[in-house]
């Protein structure tokens, strides 16, 4: 009773309050903090595994760079919209075939979409985009070019930040919308309606369909997935380098830090982690109580 009264007889201390124990109130037993647990359930990362996962982030970064490269080419007139449209069509068909091939390998639980439904959505989208491309082209005419560029840059950044890297299929609605907003802004600065249409189709390919295909690839063929990521990164740096060498250097630096430096920091700093848990922690409700 009371702090620092005379030490009591040799009965073991118990962690209970209902008993009057012959120990002072400020007594510290050997069992003090014995229920403290450190770093419970901590994940030990391996460097190359993290690098592989980070490669996906680099891939997204490069995709944006590739998209900007294509836009630069079209704007300078080095690439005709017809060529872009045909290339996109071929890529889309190839990708669609690959996607189907990869899907058939796994038995999907829900009812698969029919080819007809896919064709229908593609037709609706293309016809609407084609019909509206003159409108989209003049959409930002009253806005200054600087503002349009700034908005596009901001939206592409938002796309990169909010992209659901863990489950990219389907791409998150905010990130997809941000990317399409940026594409509309950029496409509206191109010389003709057909240019706008080609650019938007290409944007859809890069930002909406490509992540779905890549996710399939990641699930079914992890080794090829890594190869594709590396390929896209090289393509992004190379493409940007042909138009804007300084940008390519920056992109290469960014890719290096995202895919190699950041994982190294994560793995190194993981050792510094000191997470403490104990009986004082708020209990978590793990059950799904929504069905009640």
């Amino acid at each position: 009773m009371g702090p620092d009264s005379a030490p009591g007889p040799a009965v073991p201390w118990r962690k209970v309050l209902w008993e009057c124990q012959p120990f002072p109130d400020n007594y510290v037993d050997q069992r003090f903090l014995e229920e403290l647990r450190r770093n419970e359930g901590i994940r030990q990362y391996r460097y190359w595994a993290v690098v592989k996962e980070a490669g996906f982030v680099g891939e997204r970064l490069s995709c944006v760079a590739i998209f900007i490269t294509i836009w630069l080419y079209i704007e300078e007139g080095l690439l005709s919209p017809e060529t872009l449209l045909w290339t996109s069509l071929v890529c889309a068909l190839l990708g669609y075939g690959l996607h189907q091939a990869l899907t058939s390998q796994v038995e999907s639980g829900c009812e698969p979409r029919t080819r007809l439904a896919d064709l229908q959505s593609a037709t609706i989208f293309l016809s609407f985009t084609f019909g509206f491309s003159p409108v989209l082209k003049t959409l930002t005419e009253s806005v200054s070019t600087d503002t349009v560029y700034a908005m596009s840059a901001f939206m592409l950044l938002a796309h990169l930040v909010s992209f659901p890297y863990a489950h990219p299929s389907p791409p998150g609605s905010f990130s997809l919308n941000a990317a399409l907003f940026a594409s509309v802004c950029l496409a509206s600065r191109l010389p003709g309606a057909l240019h706008t249409f080609a650019m938007l189709s290409c944007a859809l390919l890069v930002f909406a369909l490509w992540p779905c295909l890549l996710q399939r690839l990641r699930e079914n063929a992890p080794s090829q997935f890594t190869g594709v990521c590396v390929g896209v990164c090289i393509g992004g740096v190379g493409g940007l380098g042909s138009q804007w060498p300084g940008g390519a250097v920056l992109l290469a630096l960014a890719l290096w830090s995202v895919t190699l430096l950041c994982p190294l920091l994560l793995v190194k700093l993981q050792g510094q982690k000191d997470n403490i848990q104990g009986p004082w922690d708020e209990a978590e409700i793990h059950e799904d109580l929504s069905h009640f």
């Binding site: 702090p3 962690k15 109130d25 003090f32 903090l33 229920e35 004082w280």
Partner: peptide, 22 residues
């Protein structure tokens, strides 16, 4: 309570000798 003491000692980085449980 003793749990509260452990918690407070950890949170405030105190010497447990100057923490009483009442």
């Amino acid at each position: 309570s003793y749990t509260s003491k452990e918690n407070t000692v950890l949170r405030a980085a105190l010497n447990p000798e100057i923490v009483s449980v009442i």
